[in-house]
Amino acid sequence: MDGRTDDAATIGVWRGVRIDVAPRDAVSVEVMVASAGVFAHEIGRTRPGGGLGNLDTALGGAITRLRADGIFRAETGDVLTLSAPARPIHATTVLAIGLGDPAVWTPETIRQAVSTAARETIRIEATSAAFAPSLLDSGLDPDGLAGTPDAMLAGLFDALSDAPARMLSRWVFCVGAGRFETVVEVFRASFDRLAAP
């Protein structure tokens, strides 16, 4: 569980943490802590699709059930930790990170979510972790997601700056398999820009 999957592409190392992008989801990524963004509701669908849908299914519908019951509202900043999940989930801990109302989503929302996930990962002293934004899975328009890689990296850097990760050595951003090489290049460009001194 070092967070490095065969299909992962490394985009850089920052403060001792190797940052990868992988065409995986929170179910299949091989890390200790798999985190996923969850909106308060989906747009144009009754349940999440894609990777977040896979995660919810692998958990027996727990995320959407707890959300419907108000136990996990998925408001911005909400964190639901599910420990010791069963296979097919590879991680030993799943974090559902609230993204709030999808109608008012901005890149800043995802920056805060990644930062929250990273802080929680550092708190529990995991050595590897992943974050799946789940934006398309929740029905957001792909044309409205500009700035997302910058925001996700900035969120990770925020957390690593505030709380040095003594144990964390790998961080994986889970993305869709479509146009993977292009997405990797976008992340690399963001990394080069944001990591520059």
């Binding site: 958990l59 027996g60 964190v79 930790t81 010791a84 708190r123």
Partner: peptide, 20 residues
């Protein structure tokens, strides 16, 4: 520590059982 920070924490199998 997670709950002190404001989060919620469940055993995943208990959560799945609730949903099931």
């Amino acid at each position: 520590r997670s709950v002190h920070a404001g989060g919620k924490h469940l055993n995943a199998q208990v959560a799945s059982s609730i949903a099931f």
